[in-house]
Design a protein around this nucleic acid. Structure first.
Lengths: 115, 115
DNA sequence: GTTACATTCAACTTTATGGTTGAATCAGAA
DNA sequence: TTCTGATTCAACCATAAAGTTGAATGTAAC
């Protein structure tokens, strides 16, 4: 439902991540996208459909093939979501936050709804 | 296999993303994590296991409960992966890259292995 | 119109996911 | 030791995902 669900699910497969990387270097037809993988064309086509459903790529009918190209918007949303957590791995805010949390846990070991 | 697989898969579910957000505000027991959801404790426990398998959280046996806390490393890896694509949505590099790609496509419309 | 090519659809199998319930575990209090 | 509370395990169900094969579609070339 949430766009984030379909986007993260789509990214959770190495085949599809590889396809995105290929597309980051330029447009490719379905056949070209499928070529590096040892699976049937139908299987690759399904992966492409998953990427499309997640909004990560667009398919365009051109000459005799379908040409796919990257649509980066949803990747940006995913990164946006991860950005929330950046403070946990970058620099001193991390340490500061952890200290505050430990202090808090020490002060209120068994309560939950205090000011 | 790849850590990225399990991480992105884990993030592809709203329940688990919510759990991570809760943990970003401090440690929580399994019961506390499960409370906001209308599902059995066993189901929540499975979600927590998925997060743990992805390395996103650590479970520690303390007093009579299991206390969970965020382990941000894998989130950083995910963001790292997404960073590859940042140029597609930020600023002028985007436009520049697209121009180069179109130029390239126009020059070599039907070849694939040229220098 | 027929042939050939690129892609998708349909049907099917196997394995994974997300949920349920009830029993099992295991630490701490009585 | 027995009771209680917190969590997990086991077995099960329904649905989805990832792959296969073979037929169907649609456009280009002949």
């Amino acid at each position: 439902m949430t766009q984030l669900n379909t986007v993260f699910q789509a990214l959770g497969d190495a085949t599809r991540r590889r396809m995105l990387r290929e597309l980051s270097e330029g447009e490719k037809t379905v056949g070209e996208l499928a070529a590096p993988f040892e699976m049937s064309l139908a299987a690759a086509s399904k992966h492409i459909k998953v990427l499309e459903r997640a909004g990560l790529i667009r398919r365009e009918v051109r000459w005799r093939s379908r040409v796919c190209h990257l649509n980066p918007g949803p990747l940006a949303s995913a990164q946006q979501w991860l950005k929330q957590y950046e403070r946990f791995w970058t620099g001193r805010l991390d340490v500061l936050e952890r200290l505050l949390r430990e202090e808090d846990a020490a002060k209120t070991p068994d309560r939950e709804g205090n000011d």
